[in-house]
Amino acid sequence: MMKSVTLLSSLVFMAILHMGCNQGSSSEQGQNSEGKKLVVGATMLSMQNEFIVNVADEMEKKANESNVELIVVDAERSPLKQVEQVESFIAQKVDAIILNPCEVEASSPAVTKAMAAKIPIINVNSATSAKPTAFVGSDDVESGRIAMKYIAEKLGGKGNVVMMHGLMGQAAQIQREQGAQEILKQYPNMKLLAHQTAGWDRAKGMALMENWIQSYGNQINAVFAQNDEMGMGAVKALTDAGLKNKVIVVSIDAIPDALQAVKKGTLDATVFQNAQQQGSKAIETAIRIAKGESYEKETLIPFQLVTKENLAKFLN
């Protein structure tokens, strides 16, 4: 009898021990080497920008799933404010920092300061000239090529194009222009009639398009807007002027508004940038680095052209 009780006690003890091990492994994914909950600070370019909000939402979701505390702050398009926010994260001794840079050069001191403080810093969606610990995003040159190639094919290789830039000096603006210019060089009968910044903003995109309509009128054959917000502004201005059916408009990001506009036929195409993967992979990378695990120094998520033909797979 004593033997069976002892055996039973041992089995119960082993079961409890086993349960304890299992529970530990599931909750430990968000813990640092001292067993404390990991804290990640994230500074985002602008929470007025729908795509950036989508990335931040995915980061929140992944952080919650991984039992990580995520502190998200809005840089409000100010690189100076962004650098101060990173200094604040360093003072708080966070385990990792995620930077969604406002500018290539002006946001670089944020990276330098974090690296000097030995806190891993992960750039998400956009680059800086200072090299971070890791980068998660997409190749913006590729998106510019995809958009301009579609325009060139639709115009049969000849016509006048206007290009709306994002915030000047930001990586996406520089690289999307680079990709578009590469394609334009291949089509000598395509002319860049005008190009100017509308700061990633819908209202500014609309105002700029209204100015171009006044200046060039029927000479404009296509618009390449470096993001959907500006593209939607251009569509509104062209529609109001009764010119939309004569002008091709292509933009980048595939935000819900843009997908609906492609469905309606007011926006000819958009280029899908995967906010869900950028957000979740940024958090995954931050956790891996903070825990001293192996990680990818560069995670590139491909862009995809979205037209009426393949729209269904991008609509939720």
Rank of each mutant, 00 (worst) to 15 (best):
D95K: 08
L305W: 04
A171T: 14
N22S: 11
V94I: 14
E182N: 10
R176E: 13
Q181F: 13
V124L: 01
D74Y: 07
K131M: 11
K36F: 06
A312E: 07
M148A: 02
K191G: 05
N160H: 08
E153P: 05
L315S: 15
L8G: 06
F89G: 08
Q175C: 12
T266F: 06
E50S: 09
A91P: 05
E293V: 02
L305N: 09
I98F: 01
K263R: 13
G20P: 11
D268M: 10
L208Y: 03
A312P: 01
N123Q: 09
L243F: 09
Q273K: 12
A261L: 13
E177T: 12
V124W: 00
N310R: 07
P120G: 08
H165P: 01
A106E: 02
S107Q: 03
I252T: 10
V162N: 09
S138M: 13
M209L: 04
S107E: 01
V223Y: 02
I213D: 02
N245T: 15
A106H: 00
Q276H: 12
K118T: 10
K263T: 07
E284A: 13
V72M: 07
A258F: 07
I248G: 04
Q29N: 08
E210C: 05
V271S: 11
N211E: 13
N316Y: 12
Q178G: 08
P79M: 03
L305P: 05
G24R: 00
V111H: 07
K263P: 06
S46R: 03
L17A: 06
Q226N: 11
M190H: 02
N54K: 15
K131V: 15
A130K: 02
M2T: 15
E50M: 09
Q170I: 14
D253H: 06
F135N: 04
T285E: 04
A106D: 10
I248V: 13
G242M: 00
K158Q: 13
S25F: 09
M163P: 01
R145Q: 15
E65Q: 13
S78C: 03
E153W: 10
Q277T: 05
A56F: 02
G20K: 11
L70Y: 07
P302F: 07
Q276Y: 12
A203C: 07
A147N: 09
A203R: 15
I283H: 00
A258P: 06
S9R: 03
M232G: 06
E284Q: 14
V141I: 15
S25T: 01
A75T: 01
F13S: 10
V262R: 00
K281P: 00
Y295D: 04
H165I: 08
L267Y: 06
H165C: 10
V271E: 10
E50F: 05
N221H: 14
N100V: 09
L7I: 13
Q277H: 07
G217S: 11
I98W: 01
